[in-house]
């Protein structure tokens, strides 16, 4: 198998685990988690410099999930990478479990870099980490996932401004541009317009990509790997599909959150496994 085929199979496995854990928890947010599975798989299985056995390794690249409700995809990846035992994912959203409904460093989950859940907060923390790397002249990079709906939040643009001002070319954002949010399609709730153009206007290097096309994802990462010295932060404006891979969830804002029932889980897993 070529490496892209291997990555795609891994992403399918991650998607299946996202669905299984949300089904088991009987609550959660499957839509965004499925939508970002491809980019995060490429990140964790190909680009991120990290060591699951040493989650506090100082030189590690950081990945911060700002739209925290999509955490099942991150939990599935971290479990698969042995940051913590698989059993933890069956305690998702349960009293006493470390895998909270929205991820937090307060619970000392190996591999979790920021407490998120309140939209708009994560990017600022990522900016702070990228600034620290610059200050210490360390080579680690900071990756952060945000959503298009977070581009409705003022704080996102405060952070976007600061990242350019402080020339954070060690910072890379994945913008999950699925055009869906909890109340409906973004265009109807609060149209954010051409956000790729907005980020570019703020001074960011913007790669507009199909968030499910591995050639485009890999090309964007390869390009970011060469930005050191450019003095500009990078954003992947990733066109994604909410619920990607599960036909009845795709682009349906009703699947922003909600657990599949037994029959839906079966159908969803079947549709994912057929494609792969």
């Amino acid at each position: 198998m070529d490496s892209i085929t291997i990555l795609k199979k891994k992403a399918t496995e991650i998607r299946c685990n996202v669905l299984r854990m949300i089904h088991h928890a009987k609550s959660g947010h499957p839509g965004g988690a499925l939508g970002m599975a491809d980019i995060l798989t490429v990140l964790y299985y190909r680009y991120l410099r990290h060591d699951p056995l040493r989650p506090d390794w100082e030189e590690r690249d950081r990945f911060l999930l700002s739209n925290g409700h999509t955490c099942p995809v991150l939990y599935a990846i971290l479990a698969d990478q042995k940051y913590f035992p698989d059993e933890e994912i069956w305690k998702l959203r349960r009293l006493g479990g470390m895998l909270q409904g929205h991820p937090s460093t307060a619970w000392e989950v190996p591999g979790i870099e920021v407490s998120s859940g309140s939209l708009g907060n994560g990017l600022s923390v990522a900016v702070g980490m990228a600034m620290a790397a610059k200050l210490d002249q360390k080579g680690y990079r900071v990756f952060c996932q945000i959503s298009d709906a977070e581009c409705q939040a003022g704080q996102t643009w405060e952070a976007a401004t600061a990242a350019v001002h402080y020339r954070l070319d060690n910072l890379c954002i994945f913008l999950d541009w699925n055009q869906c949010q909890i109340d409906g399609h973004t265009e109807e709730v609060m149209d954010v317009g051409d956000i790729a153009a907005k980020w570019a206007a703020f001074g960011w290097r913007v790669h507009e990509i199909d968030g499910h096309n591995y050639d485009e994802i890999i090309a964007a990462f390869d390009s970011f790997a060469q930005t050191a010295g450019s003095n500009k932060p990078t954003l992947f404006a990733a066109h994604t599909i909410l619920g990607k891979g599960v036909s009845f969830m795709e682009d349906d804002p009703n699947w922003h959150h909600g657990a599949p029932n037994d029959a839906q889980l079966k159908e969803a897993l079947a549709s994912l496994l057929v494609v792969s």
Binding site: E58, E113, G120, S124, V125, G128, D136, Q155, H165
Partner: peptide
């Protein structure tokens, strides 16, 4: 000057950035 960061009139971002710096050993 290199350890001082003026964040402009953007206090919510300043607090997040401060957290990121603290989490990175500052």
């Amino acid at each position: 000057p290199n350890r001082f960061f003026n964040m402009g009139v953007a206090e919510p971002n300043m607090m997040g950035v401060a957290a990121g710096l603290a989490m990175s050993g500052k």
